[in-house]
Design a protein around this nucleic acid. Structure first.
Lengths: 132, 132
DNA sequence: TCAATTGCGTTATGCTATAACGTGTGCGAT
DNA sequence: ATCGCACACGTTATAGCATAACGCAATTGA
């Protein structure tokens, strides 16, 4: 599932996300790309679908937004579960990985014979700067 | 933050969620309560807001749905982080708590001086029965 | 009694996401 | 070569999720 060359639309969407300093909603991305010919949400969603598949973009379920992966060049899917800390004030996102957490969750799923497909870990709160 | 007596609408919404065998969207709840006089989404959302606050209902961020807490009578907020395993086939939800996971995430947030307000852990996949 | 709070009902609106249709392009198999 | 297939793309329409803003009624406590 590594990333092949991106199509034009995929590259445009990825570029917007990479240059953004925080997560963006699909419609925000759409607005930013109107000058590049984007007219409809599907253009964004279809690109996002692929970018998510390639592991270069993450979806933040709790805020219906998307963010470029913090590991440019690498395939994030190989890092285990991805966790996010999302500042509700400045909307900065920190991405991290904790193998111990992965292990505990995998232990649980194995004990329940639950076949995990996609795991979401999102911590919402205030970053150091905003909490002060 | 323990639960005071529920108002009529809150009780109706909670009842629907408790009797359901899986998570429900706000609009599904609305449909189930039309016979009881519910007409608008806000009636559901306002009740849900309180039920979430009281800790007797959980919101599943990844599927925009709501589910009654698996610990009737107790205050779920005192159990630490709540995690969910959601079967994408039969939509059964398993709720669990893992102190070790809590600890690891808290260690991370403390090390980053991130003030966590609300943490989401949701595992989507197939339950034992559906994976067979 | 007055003010503040809380719940409720209604209308309208905004945000998020996908269905369904059709077009064009590249590419391998026959 | 051309047929068939897969895939990206564009467009319109619609479905699904959530809240803003208004007003009213009941409760409570100073």
């Amino acid at each position: 599932m590594s990333a092949p060359a991106l199509t034009k639309n995929q590259a445009l969407v990825f570029d917007v996300l990479e240059k953004a300093d925080g997560p963006l909603s699909a419609y925000t991305i759409l607005d930013k790309l109107r000058d590049h010919g984007f007219r409809a949400p599907l253009q964004v969603y279809r690109a996002l679908e692929k970018l998510l598949e390639y592991g270069v973009v993450h979806r933040l379920e709790s805020i219906n937004s998307f963010v470029a992966c913090a590991h440019p060049g690498e395939n994030c899917h190989s890092h285990g579960i991805v966790a996010f800390a999302i500042c509700e004030s400045c909307s900065q996102v920190m991405e991290f990985h904790d193998h111990e957490v992965d292990q505990r969750l995998m232990d649980w799923t194995r004990s329940k014979k639950f076949k995990a497909e996609k795991t979401t870990i999102e911590i919402r709160g205030l970053c150091e700067a905003c909490a002060a």
